[in-house]
Simulated scan of single mutants.
Amino acid sequence: MEESFKFIGLLLVLIFLVLIYKQYKKLIQIYKEIGAEMFSYFPPKALLKLGSQKIEISYLYGLVIRTKVSLNGYLSLEKKWLGKSFNTFFDDPSWAKIVLDSSKLILLIKPEAQLPHLSSVEILGNTLKIAFYHRKIDQAFKEEIKRAIELLPEVVKSFEGLPSSKIGIVKERLRNWLFYYLPLSIFLIFTAVGIYWRVLGYGDVLCRDDLFKLGFKLLIPIYLLHLLATYFILGRHFHLRKNLLILIILYFAGYYLIPFVVLEPFNARFDRSEAKRIETIVKGKYVLYGKMGGFFLKLSDLNCPFRVSERLYKKAKIGDKMVFYVKEGVFGLPWAYRFWIERVSTENFRENKTSNR
C-alpha cells in the first residue's frame, strides 16, 4: 500500500512538472514572437528594444512588463477583487493628480485597451510596471501582451515634462519594511538563537499539543496587532489583492515554525525551576510520517504521546519504565530536562538529552 502511494505521488509530481514545462515553452514562444531576447531562463526574463526604449518582460506569479520613465514617484492602479474597475494608491496626492490628468497612464486601464487580464499599473520610483495575471498562456493572452507593448511608448512619452514626486518612494519602502522585512528579520534572529539552544539540549516539551496551544494564544494577538498596525499606518495603501495571500502564507508558516524553533527552546533556556523526577510506564509506541511526524511513545500518567529519537524508540518495549527529570518551563510548559528507559529486568537505556548549562 505504501509503495502504491509513493507511485501515485511520483506520478502527480511528474504530471505537474510536464504542465509547468508546457506553460514554460508557450511563454518562451511569446517572447520570441514579440521580438524579445532572453537573458534569464529562471525566472524567464527577456529584453525588448523599441528604439531607445528598453522593455523588460518577466514571469513568475504573473507576467510583468517594466520600463524606465522620466519621472519619479509612487502611483499604483490596481484592479478590484470583484469588478473591472481599478483602485488608485499614492503617497503624494498633488503629484498623483498631475500624472493622472496630464499623462496617458489611464489609457492602459480603459476598456478600449482590451487588456482584460491586466492586474495593475504601477509607477515605482522611475520604473513603470504593468502586471498581468492569467493562468492560461494562450493565443488570446499573447495578443493582449502585444497590445500592451504597442500602447507603452505612447504612455511613456506622455510622462515627459511632468515633475517627479517630492516624496518619491520613501513611504513605499517604509511599508515594505513594516509589512515584510522587519517581521522576517525578527523571526530569523529568534530562529537562529532557538536552533542554537536546541542543539545545546533545550527543548523536548512533554506535550506538543500544549506547545501548539501556547503558540496559538501568543501568535494570534501578535498577528492581529501586525495586521492592524499595517492597515492603519498604510491607510488606503493597504494593497489587499497584492499582499493578503502572502500575508496568510507567512502567518500559517509562522504558526507551524515558531512553536518549535522559538517557543520550545526559549521555554527551556530561561527556566530556573528545579527538576523533579517522574516515573511512568511505556504503554505503546508508533511512528508518524510527514512534516509533523516522528517516533512517539505512549506513556502512563501523560495525556499526550512523547516524541523520542529513533534509537530510543527501537529500544523501548511495552511495560518498560521511563524516568523523567522534568522542569516547569518559563512559559508553563513542562519539559524533559533528562530522560531514559529503565528495563524492568537488567539494563538501562539513557537518552543523552541533558541541557548544557
Rank of each mutant, 00 (worst) to 15 (best):
I15D: 14
F16L: 11
L19A: 14
K26L: 09
K32C: 12
Y41T: 11
P43L: 05
P44D: 12
P44E: 11
K49P: 05
L50R: 03
Q53I: 10
Q53P: 01
I55Q: 00
V64E: 09
T67C: 10
S70T: 04
K80D: 09
S85N: 05
F89V: 02
D92P: 03
S94W: 01
I98V: 10
D101S: 05
K104M: 04
I106Y: 00
L108Y: 03
E112D: 11
A113G: 02
L115H: 00
P116M: 06
H117T: 03
I123S: 03
T127M: 12
T127P: 08
L128F: 05
A131P: 00
H134C: 11
D138P: 02
D138M: 02
K142W: 04
K146F: 07
I149D: 04
L151I: 02
E154K: 09
S158H: 02
E160D: 15
P163W: 02
I167T: 03
K171N: 13
I189Y: 10
A192L: 14
G194K: 07
Y196W: 11
Y202E: 07
G203Q: 09
R208C: 05
L211S: 01
L211F: 01
L214P: 02
K217W: 14
L224C: 12
H226D: 13
L227G: 13
A229P: 10
Y231Q: 13
G235F: 00
R236Y: 05
L240H: 10
L244T: 11
L245P: 10
I248V: 15
I248L: 15
F252R: 10
Y255A: 15
F260V: 09
A268K: 06
D271N: 06
R277V: 14
T280P: 15
L288N: 08
Y289Q: 12
P305S: 05
F306G: 12
V308F: 02
L312G: 08
Y313H: 01
Y313R: 04
Y313D: 04
K314H: 02
K315L: 12
K321E: 14
F324Q: 03
K327Y: 07
E328Q: 12
P334E: 04
R338M: 09
R338S: 12
R338E: 15
I341W: 03
I341K: 04
E342K: 08
V344W: 00
S345D: 15
E347I: 04
F349I: 03
R350C: 08
E351Q: 12
N356L: 13
